[in-house]
Design a protein around this nucleic acid. Structure first.
Lengths: 284, 284
DNA sequence: GTCTGTGAATGCCTTCACAGCG
DNA sequence: CGCTGTGAAGGCATTCACAGAC
């Protein structure tokens, strides 16, 4: 999403996803600006796939491919061609019957639809392992997502530049986000601080949040949250392993080696919460 | 949804998601073992949420809460109570009418359903930032996901222990996975090597893969893949920013500052591919 | 003939609403 | 009377299948 969805969407939802996210539809707005309102009409699931098509198309462009059919593109993106055509139809008719799509045109239209023609300044909160990675990644700024602010709680980290940007203290989230016009906040903190951080980001004018902390964030309805939860992903995989084993004959009920995780339910209390797959995201 | 999601992914998401993932239903199998076949019947989206409920329930247990109603649990998990009850109904009837659910019982049943009563040895491939984080995270082994193998291409890393486990060379994936009975493979490499790595994991007997590389992996149908794609997540958020701005009056068409990302379609070629949000996952 | 674009059909998931148990 | 469990209804998303442009 999401899978997870995404979902949600779920994901995911995906998706998966699928994955995550809660659309919250407002049926009060009447159809008026037609063309402008089009965005509204694109299903969440389709939006997620458009991003995938965009990546594939970029790859094709790099190989100097100028034209592609729905079948080729669909295969490369891992979907069937009917779905792909329907997805593309939401953003308009840019193909040529009997031929296919022009790669450059399609890239342009998808970028426009996804709002990638505009800069989206990003703030990363929680400069642990993942935070570091995000801050250092050069592909972000070049793709329209400049990382413009970093935050952490640790005084030892404050003012230390990571990926060229000095880390600010969490207490300054609101004012720094306001100043630097941050639109997207990435929460890479442990579970405990996440809601607090989220509140501050929202107070600082951030309307979109990507949450790696294993908590369900409470936000006003005009704020969009997407969640990436490794614990959930692992457990979904676990479910599929289990299912497959059941199917493949009850005989295969091998408990691997006696090493049980402890009687579920009453079981041995585990250090703490899968909670933090996000602990993994903590200080290195 | 991420949500995987997909999304499933999404939604997701997704699924979800939402996200990600492709169920691939086989309608040939006839209903026979009823109870055993139950797992089959649980919707993918519900499985993702069960993992969320499990986390919330663990939190409640830690606070010594012994009983919880569908309403309380639903609120804490960020879903509505009808959905939660339906999800729980897929795994059986463990509530008490007029009262609610016993926390311990529910935890046990969800763990059983998700196959968490069994160990799932994990291999992490690509010991960059994210790989490091995963290898170091103590919550994995304690929750039934022992990280039992690490792989990287870099000779400088081979034999260096990370999180207590020495890194093996990518060339040895097949035999090491066989030996250590790895069931879940996590791909945290850049895009280029991902398919190759995936093939080796599969050859080594891995049936479930969590993929962080921005590529659509090709796998046999008996292998389950979940994808986590930051690029997609960011772009979905971007879409929502764009949509919101359109809604909030056309006037607000502020291009922030003239800094465009370059004419989409024909645009300035960007370093390379959002491709690797995964670059972020590369060597620190 | 090829391949896109799209109404119509199908199937999945969510939501409703209430019967039934404690 | 409260809260669970669940059939039935409704809403989305995917898939089908074909008309129409090239």
């Amino acid at each position: 999403m999401t899978a997870h969805g995404e979902d949600v969407r779920d994901g995911d939802g995906r998706a998966e996803s699928d994955s995550p996210s809660e659309p919250a539809s407002s049926p009060e707005t009447i159809e008026v600006p037609a063309a402008r309102e089009r965005a509204r009409a694109i299903p969440e699931a389709a939006v997620a796939r458009l991003a995938v098509y965009l990546r594939v198309l970029s790859g094709l462009r790099d190989q100097d491919v100028t034209t592609v059919s729905s079948d080729e593109l669909a295969t490369a993106a891992g979907v069937n061609s009917a779905k792909l055509r329907k997805d593309l139809s939401y953003i308009g008719s840019y193909g040529t019957r009997g031929v296919g799509y022009e790669v450059a045109v399609l890239i342009g239209q998808i970028e426009r639809t996804l709002g990638l023609t505009r800069k989206h300044s990003v703030a990363v909160v929680g400069i642990g392992n993942l935070g570091h990675a995000l801050a250092n990644y050069g592909g972000f700024p070049s793709r329209g997502f400049p990382v413009a602010a970093l935050f952490d709680l640790d005084p030892d980290l404050v003012d230390v530049p990571v990926g060229g940007i000095p880390v600010s203290h969490i207490d300054d989230i609101v004012e720094v986000c306001r100043e630097r016009e941050i639109t997207i906040g990435v929460i890479a903190t442990p579970a405990q601080g996440a809601q607090e951080v989220c509140d501050r980001l929202v107070a600082g004018g951030v309307t979109c949040i990507l949450n790696f902390a294993p908590v369900v964030l409470q936000v006003p309805e005009d704020v969009e949250v997407r969640k990436v939860d490794l614990a959930v992903e692992m457990q979904i995989l676990s479910f599929h392993v289990a299912r497959r084993q059941q199917e493949a004959g009850v005989a295969g009920e091998s408990e691997v080696d006696g090493a049980d995780i402890g009687p579920p339910g009453t079981g041995v209390r585990v250090p703490d919460e899968f909670d933090s797959v996000n602990g993994m995201v903590e200080r290195l």
